[in-house]
Design a protein around this nucleic acid. Structure first.
Lengths: 338, 338
DNA sequence: TATTATAATGTAATCGATTACATAAAAATT
DNA sequence: AATTTTTATGTAATCGATTACATTATAATA
């Protein structure tokens, strides 16, 4: 049986308004009255009806993650799942819940975000697959949809974001390769237009300047579609007889795994002949042979921050953007003994 | 601006009831009237308020996936994300949405499922991390929560499920190892009490009977906690100097990856010395070296079926349980040339 | 044509919460 | 003690949809 606030009111011998006040921790309720109400709630096993609350307040406790049909395999990327896990840890025990909206739109289309918000299925959204100068950001602002961006794609705009220090990441990865003797580092970057790709490239270039090493643009390759293993494999395979390089920096561990396999399949020893550095530090990085040197991002923490920051925005608290530090985890793929 | 059904009614020059009838595809609306209403909806950009609908109908279009805090890393398992992806593909374009409820309860606790249902955050749930004789099933039935079970944990009970043919899976994996000359197959099974573990063991035993090979119970090992790479690694490491075996069947590709690494680290050649067969066929299976022979489950299809079956249950249609076929994908880890 | 049956549309109650406003009770001030 | 101020509680309107029931328009029949 499902009880309503009326049942609670009757059982406790008070009005529905008082019950509502207790539920929402209003300070204008006497200790004694509050006790009565809480007892009634417990006795009946009362659970507030979220739809009714949402209808009345015009608010929703759904935390939206919109996933476009054409890139739904994002869900299966370790980076993304770890991010979701972080969000979940923050939301656990709160009244908020994670809503995955599967849209039929393309990834740069805002309409599914807006529809979910207007339908009150979600009260705010996390924008995670952002591109440079993402058009969705100004639209979300215009329609007053609370949102948090994962990354910093739009430079001349004001919005709340969580991000990791991708410039530093690109820099320490490249520096490490230089330090162990590389002179020509192949950089397999994420898709062109992805803000993280741009920042990591900045770091890659900075490292060259710092070490006084000439930049060869032919060494910089953007993955066309997405950063999966197959793409990493194929880019290395096709680069091998096209250009000379003595180290590889790959913008993603998954892709790096593919890159390593391509080297191995070509009879090149990873680490000994050509060192490889990845990005992310997902679990697979420590399970491949040789284990992968990579830039560690605090992915779970970024997910946690995305959730808690969005909740702050939705609650009208003043939310602040955050940039998370990254660090290099050195393993066998950049070691001569590997 | 957010318009309501009243605004649509006014614009179209009809009553709210008529608008509602158009929205719900009632057949008692004249073509002409329907046109007027649809035009008004389009003009205003009207989007129905889900909370109001849910309040009135006492229904929810949330498809619930409850994830317990203590096993939230499930989210990051490729098997699970691919399952979610399948669900998403089915839900895409429908009015249903996937809700991940992060609970603070332990996995065998039903209360977060019930709470989410009573709060109307979800209209039904998918039960995916089931154990033998799962107590949650009768409770969900008792409280009339629409649900679908992934697996078949309770044998003497009636409920809707989707599952893959784990008996066959265990059988073809073991048979394959026998066929290539193994006599003593180490079976690293999932956790004791997991229904999938039980079915796969059945298959493993059946294969022994079929080939007339004696069963040595010491070869059957249940992973204690969860099927991650580290556990696979450690079980093989500790088994090596404890018991003699000439092949390994691992109930999960992730764990199999760990098992392979343990062999390699002990100077044993995977395939050549000891062949390894996994389960699931997740992407990593074809990227490890050597590539992994494994039992392929149609995980995405199972996710799709879980979603569409649950929607059927929620819609009151007669839903039917499904068992999906599995097949063996032969790769290098069971080849002498690997 | 008048009457009845049928189909289309409208009116108003309802779902369960919140909250502005009204009222009652208690505390503070004169 | 009378009056004012403050605090606690109650009453009733409201959010946006659905739907039982009432009403009107149309078609079918006598």
């Amino acid at each position: 049986m499902n009880f309503s606030i009326k049942d609670v009111a009757k059982t406790a011998g008070v009005s529905v308004a008082t019950v509502s006040r207790v539920l929402n921790n209003s300070d204008k309720v006497t200790g004694e009255t509050r006790e009565k109400v809480l007892r009634a709630i417990k006795t009946l096993g009362y659970v507030p009806n979220y739809s009714a609350k949402s209808l009345r307040t015009n608010l929703s406790t759904g935390i939206g993650l919109v996933i476009s049909h054409d890139v739904d395999y994002f869900i299966t990327f370790p980076y993304f799942s770890e991010f979701v896990r972080g969000m979940g840890q923050t939301l656990s025990g709160t009244d908020y819940h994670l809503v995955m909206v599967m849209s039929t739109d393309s990834r740069d289309d805002i309409s599914s975000h807006l529809r979910a918000f207007e339908r009150k299925v979600v009260g705010g959204v996390v924008l995670f697959d952002v591109m440079d100068n993402d058009k969705r950001i100004p639209i979300l602002k215009k329609y007053r949809v609370p949102f948090v961006v994962v990354g910093r794609p739009n430079l001349d705009e004001d919005y709340i974001y969580v991000d990791s220090d991708n410039v530093k990441g690109g820099m320490i990865a490249t520096e490490h390769l230089f330090k162990i003797g590389c002179k020509r580092v192949l950089f397999i970057n994420g898709p062109r237009g992805h803000s993280a790709s741009r920042y990591r490239l900045d770091g890659y270039l900075k490292a060259h300047k710092k070490f006084g090493i000439q930049i060869d643009k032919k060494l910089i390759i953007y993955v066309k579609s997405d950063s999966d293993m197959k793409n990493g494999y194929e880019i290395v395979k096709s680069s091998l007889n096209r250009i000379k390089f003595d180290g590889i920096f790959v913008s993603g561990d998954f892709m790096a795994t593919g890159a390593m396999k391509a080297l191995k399949d070509s009879g090149i020893r990873v680490g000994k002949d050509i060192p490889v550095v990845g990005f992310d530090d997902v679990p697979i990085a420590s399970m491949v042979t040789p284990t992968l040197t990579t830039v560690k991002q605090p992915i779970k923490d970024i997910g946690k921050a995305a959730a808690s920051t969005l909740v702050d925005v939705m609650d009208g608290k003043n939310a602040i953007s955050k940039v998370f530090d990254v660090s290099l985890v050195i393993r066998q793929s950049t070691s001569k003994e590997g």
